[in-house]
Design a protein around this nucleic acid. Structure first.
Lengths: 212, 212, 212, 212
DNA sequence: CGGTAAACGAGACGGTACGTCCGGTCTTTGC
DNA sequence: GCAAAGACCGGACGTACCGTCTCGTTTACCG
C-alpha cells in the first residue's frame, strides 16, 4: 500500500515544500468539504464563496482545505466532477442511425441541464474561473469539457463512417460548430438557450456536413 | 445623451442617494483612472486588479472612482470602449463580392487582435466578468460584443441578398456558427487560435450556408 | 496646528514604511480600544488577551489597532498609563518629618494597590511583558516604574538633607533596597505582600541608612 | 486502577486522564527534547519557542512531549534543572569568617552567571513564565529560586550565630534585602548588574544587619 | 471679484477574508 | 503499548482591500 514514500515525495517529486501524506487523509473531511462547497456555491455564487465559509460549513479547519487544494476553484472542480459521474459520458449519444434526431435529442437534454440551476451554478463558476486562469482552465477542460465534447466526436465519427457526413470533414471542427454557438449563448449570454435554438443549430450545421 | 445639465439624472430619479454633478467632473481624473486601470489589468490581471491600486496609480482618491463607477468592471469597460473606437466597427467587413475571402480575411485579423496581449488582457477580463455577472454581461454585450457581431451580420445579409447564401438561412444563427467556435476556443482555451482554424471554419460554415 | 507634515513624516523621519496621519486619528476609537484592552486583560489575563478580542469588544477594525500600536503590550501600556494619572506620582510621599512613619504608610498603600486585582492584572501583564522583551521593558520602566521609584528618591533625599540618613548613602541604592524586596515578593511570588512585611522591611532598611 | 507502580507520579494521584507508563519511557527521547528546548530557547527566546519546533529539532512526535509534560514551561524547567546540578547549591557559600568578603564574592559570581547568555536565556524564560502563571511559579520557586535563597540563609544564620548579625534580625528578610534589589535590576532591567553594584549592596545591607 | 458649494486628494475607519502558524487532540503504523 | 509521524479542528495572527466616511484643498460658478 504505502509503497510510494509518503512525505519524502522522492518518487513523484514534491511540488511544494512538504507534501502531505495522502494515505492518511481523512475521507470524512474530504467529503464534508466537497459537499459544503457545492452547497455554498449554489447559495451565494462563486465570487462570494469563501474558503472560510466552506471550512465552517464542513466543520473543518481551514488548513485541511489548504493542505489538499491550491484554490477554491480546485475544490469546486473536484466537488463537481465527483457529482457528474463518468457514467454520463460513457453512455454517450444514442446511435439510432438518424443523426439529426440523435443530435437534437442530446442537445435538448444538454439545454435542460444547463438551464438547471443546481448544475449551472458550479459549472459556470468553473467555466468562469477557467476563462480567467489558464492553469485552472487546463484542468477544467480535461476533466469536464473534453469528455463532453468527445461524446459528440464519437457520434459524428460513427456517422461519417456510415457515409452520412462527408469524408473530408474534420470531426473536431464539426463538434466545435455544434457546441461553440451553444457555449457562447450560455456563457456569454448572447441569446436564450432553447430547444428551438439547438434544433436550428443542428439543421444548419448538418447542411455543411452532409456529403455533396 | 448625457448632454443635459448638472445632476440631470437626479430629476428623473437618481440611482443612488445623491447624484454627483457631472458638469463639474474632472476630465483629468477620469482619464487618469481609465489609463491606470488599463495599465494595471495588463500587469496583474483582472482578479488582482484593485480599486486601491488604480486610485494610487492614477493619483486619485478612491472616492473619485466610487463616485462615478459602480464597480471595477465598469471602470474597465469604459476604459476599454474608449480605446476600441467605434470606427473599427463602422468600417465593417470589406465587401469584394467574394464572401469566403472577405470572411477569412476579417477572421484572420480578428485572430491577430485576440492574440495581442494588449487587447486580450482587458477584453478577457471583461468577458470573464460578464460571464460571472449577468448584469454586467448586458453592458459588455451591448457595448462590445453585439457591435462586433453586427458587422458579420451585415456582410452575411449582403451575401444573402446577392444569392450567395440560401434564402432560408437565419443570418443571426449563421453568425453564431462563425463566431461561437472562435469564442469558445479563445475564451475557454479549447484550442489554438490560428489562421488555419478560422480558414477551415469559414470553409465548413459556408458549405452549410450555400444555396442548394 | 497641523504644522508637522502628516504622512510625509519628513521632519521626524518615518519609523515604518508609511506613517499614519495622527491628526486624523479617531479619539473615539482610541479610547474604545484602551478601555476594551483594560477590561479584557482583567477578564482573561495577558496571555489569552488577543488583538481580535480587543477589536471586537471595542467595535473597531483590527487594522485600526495595528495602525497605531506595534503590539498588544504597547496597547496595554498606553491603556494603563492613561488610567494611572500622573497626579499620583506628583503628589509624592508625605513628608511629616517622621521618615519611618511616612515610608511605612506609603508602602502599606502600595501593598494595597498591588493586591487590588483591577490594578494588578494589567500591571503584572506589563511587568511580565517587559521582563521578556528588552525593548518593551524600556518603555515600561520609563513610564511606570521610574516615576514610582523617583517618588521614593525624593523623600529619601529630603531625609538625607535633614540628617536622618547618613550622608554617604547612595539614595538610588537605598530605594532599591526598599523596593527590590517588595517587587521580588510580588512579581516572583517569593512571599506574601502584607503590611507586616513592608513595616519590617522599612525597619531593617532604615537601620542601614541611619547616620552612625 | 492506575494505582500501581507504572508512572511514579501516578502514585500520588494522576493529574491527567491516563498516566503513561514511565518505565517504558524512552530516555533517548527525553534527553533529545530537553536538549532541543534548551538550544531553542537560546536561539529564539521563550515567546517564540514552540512545541512544534522542539519536537522537530528533537526528532520526536509532538505527542511524546504532551504525554510527559503539561506545558512548554515545564519542559524548560526540567531541562534547566538537569543542567544546573544540585552540587552548586550544596556547595553553599564559603564561610571564611569574613561575612562581607564572602557575600561580595558570591554575589560577584552570581552577577557573572546572570550575565552569561547561556544561563540567562532559559532562566529568564522561566522567571517570566513563573511571573505570568502562579501555578508554574510554585515549581520555579521550589526548584530553582528557593534553593538559591537558602544558600544565603545558611551563611547569614551562621554569621548571626557568630554574633556578626544582630540577634533580632529576621534572616529571611535579610536575604530578601540582598537578593531583591539584585533580582529587580536583572529581571526588570532597572539597572546594570555589575560587581560594583553588588559590592555596594552588601555594604549597605550589612550596615543594617550589624549588632548595635 | 469675492463667497460658496461641490468635486477632489488623501487616507482613517469598520469590516471580511485571506493564507499561515501553532496549540492540543486523534489516528495510523512500526517496533 | 510507547513512540514517530503527522493529519486534524480550532482559533489568532498580521495583511490586503473593500466600500464608506471625514478631512482640508482646489475649482468653478454665481451673485
Amino acid at each position: 500500500m504505502s509503497s510510494a514514500a509518503p512525505g519524502s515525495s522522492s518518487a513523484s517529486g514534491g511540488r511544494r515544500f512538504r507534501t502531505p501524506d495522502a494515505s492518511r487523509r481523512s475521507e470524512r473531511s474530504r467529503r464534508a468539504i466537497l459537499d459544503a462547497s457545492m452547497e455554498l456555491v449554489g447559495e451565494v455564487g462563486y465570487n462570494r464563496l469563501t474558503i472560510e465559509a466552506v471550512a465552517a460549513r464542513a466543520g473543518v479547519g481551514k488548513q485541511t482545505i489548504y493542505r489538499w487544494w491550491p484554490s477554491k476553484a480546485a475544490v469546486l472542480l473536484e466537488a463537481f466532477t465527483t457529482v457528474v459521474t463518468d457514467d454520463e459520458y460513457e453512455a454517450g449519444i444514442p446511435d439510432t442511425g438518424d443523426l439529426e434526431a440523435d443530435l437534437k435529442q442530446v442537445l435538448r437534454a444538454t439545454v435542460d441541464e444547463f438551464t438547471d440551476a443546481a448544475f449551472e451554478a458550479p459549472y459556470r463558476a468553473l467555466a468562469v474561473a477557467g476563462a480567467a486562469d489558464a492553469e485552472l482552465s487546463e484542468q477544467f477542460l480535461e476533466r469536464l469539457m473534453a469528455p463532453g465534447m468527445e461524446v459528440y466526436s464519437r457520434r459524428l465519427r460513427s456517422a461519417q463512417e456510415a457515409g452520412q457526413i462527408a469524408e473530408d470533414v474534420d470531426i473536431g471542427l464539426a463538434v466545435e460548430m455544434l457546441l461553440g454557438p451553444f457555449q457562447q449563448r450560455w456563457l456569454q449570454r448572447t441569446g436564450n438557450l432553447t430547444h428551438e435554438f439547438t434544433d436550428a443549430l443542428v439543421d444548419l450545421a448538418l447542411r455543411g456536413l452532409a456529403p455533396r
